[in-house]
Amino acid sequence: MTADLPEGLQADEGLATEIRALLAEHAGREGPLLPILHAVQARFGHLPAPALPLIAAALGLSRAEIHGIASFYHDFRELPAGRHVLKLCRAEACQAVGGVALAETMRRTLGIDWGETTPDGRVTLEPVFCLGLCACGPAAMLDGTVIGRATPDRLTEAVA
């Protein structure tokens, strides 16, 4: 049934097999879409476009619906991220202790804006609204590891 899909949405056999295996793991769950999207991104680092028609077909939804849901969330990416993902908290508690200045320094140092990846593919910079580290800000997270009282030097060293 994927045969009439436009170019770019055709899953090759390897991808289709992997996606079907992931879908099988979630069969029978109540409200399976969000766990499926997380599983696909955990496996591929992003949501490959050809995966969406397969998920849609399995759940009886349209591609547009899957896109509408996945794109609602900040977490899901359409393209792979850099080797490191640096998230900087932009919320109020971190603003109160220099978070805005830290973010500006890091954007300048890395030469990229929010959501962008350095040209060498080393690091993707993302905003996050609260990591729950509000008593030891400015807070950051590098590839899932939390960093408190972050400074430009410490973050620059961490992504080197």
Partner: peptide, 23 residues
């Protein structure tokens, strides 16, 4: 169940839609 970075999902009805796999 793990959320996916949307503040509004802390609102209970948005959260329920998210859990159900809806927008």
């Amino acid at each position: 169940r793990v959320g996916a970075g949307a503040y509004v999902c802390g609102e209970e009805t948005s959260l329920l839609n998210s859990l159900e796999g809806r927008r």
